[in-house]
Write a protein that binds this DNA or RNA. Sequence first.
RNA 1: GGAGAGGUGCUCGAGUGGCUGAAGAGGUACGCCUGGAAAGCGUAUAAACGUGAAAAUGUUUCGAGGGUUCGAAUCCCUCUCUCUCCGCCA
Length: 423
Amino acid sequence: MLLVPYIRENKEAVATALKIKNFKDIDILDLIVNTDDNRRELQKKLDDTLAESKIIAKEIGGLFKSGKIEEANIKKAKTGELKELSKSLSDDLAEAKKKLTYLLLKVPNIPHPSVIAGNSDEDNEIIKNIGEIPEMPDNALPHWELTEKYDIIDFELGNKITGAGFPVYKGKGARLQRALINFFLDEASNAGFREVQPPLLVNEDSGYGTGQLPDKDGQMYHVGEDNLYLIPTAEVPITNIYRDVIVKAVDFPIRNTAYSQCFRREAGSYGKDVRGLNRLHQFDKVEIVVIDHPEKSYARLEEMTNYVQSLLVKLELPYRLLRLCGGDLSFTAALTFDMEVYSAAQKRWLEVSSVSNFESFQANRLKLRFKDENGKTQLAHTLNGSALALPRIVAALLENNQTPEGIKIPKALVPYTGFEYIN
RNA sequence: GGAGAGGUGCUCGAGUGGCUGAAGAGGUACGCCUGGAAAGCGUAUAAACGUGAAAAUGUUUCGAGGGUUCGAAUCCCUCUCUCUCCGCCA
């Protein structure tokens, strides 16, 4: 959520910036300011009314004590009116606040000045290409055939047990998963991230805190009996650690990492692009989350992006780094870098990581604050990124490393898998 | 799941209808004292929202929400969380 005072003072700039994100409903900004004016006015009236009745209540107390019952009763009658007035004012105020929040939730985050306009992923800026795209023989197989050939990931079995998008990892496939998880967690620890193991189900408040609710309600699995949601990413529980928290500035930067399974309904996405491991309902991911001072957040974003790239380099995967254009940027992000790995057999780029700075957008919803040098509380900046999500990494590893002898495991991973080839 | 007890500020803890945003203690910060430190002494120490140029000041918040009352941390209702006992159980 954007801050109302910020919108108020920078309305033109906000409007211009939001156009880069293809946000159409610019008039909403005026509506927000008007609603806020109304809210303030009601607040003032309510405060005054309450202050008055408070004074009278005290007077009545005094009168009762000194035995002036009659006078007290006269005063009592007077507070009746005030009570009714304050009741209606506080109803109006609650209504105005609700409306304001509703409006604010509709406004996306403001993109960073470096973000260019654009409509889709085709307009994203390619910042660099790293690694050589391997030349594959004509008979190179896509991963969904390799997994069957080596019997390491069973999609059919998953269909039987649960449904599409819930594969069963078997033998070296299962082992490879575990190896990647441990590799990513170890790397993150070495890079200064604290490892946490969060719950996989979260309550409604947490869903709102990180913005999955209400917008993405239908994308999360919901356990109705207990009104809990399966997390779509560890970002949700980790970031919510800091919901309603005032952190100490000396603790900055606060770096956390967590491995979790992620659950996504992916309602409405079917077709060729989602075959095999490209899109799953349940998958594994190691996430990194950073909280820092507003002045430091962009340096931190770069640091995180570099860190994720270092993982790809160690895994010997050719990748490219993209800066998302306004149209492809998520609702909450101010700036996002995507890393895409080249999948040789599918002949396409697969997004394996998204690293974003949300500035204070998330923190405002979360009420995640810190005390600055002057002792003032202000919103912190939050960032997060995948480091990394497994399925597409596995897909690329399988496809790019297929050899007549089997799938060659990259050197960095061998200590974790305990084998050099899947065959 | 059944029975009971409880949730007060950074922490502990008092408080059963008005003088309590909240005693007292601890912690922390600053100052005094000291050659330095400890002890001692003094002062400060929540957040949100309003008004104000600022100093300042109003309102709200004692798990959450609702109710009773002129007035609620204190009484009533609902929910939630924690603890104890029983049951069940990875």
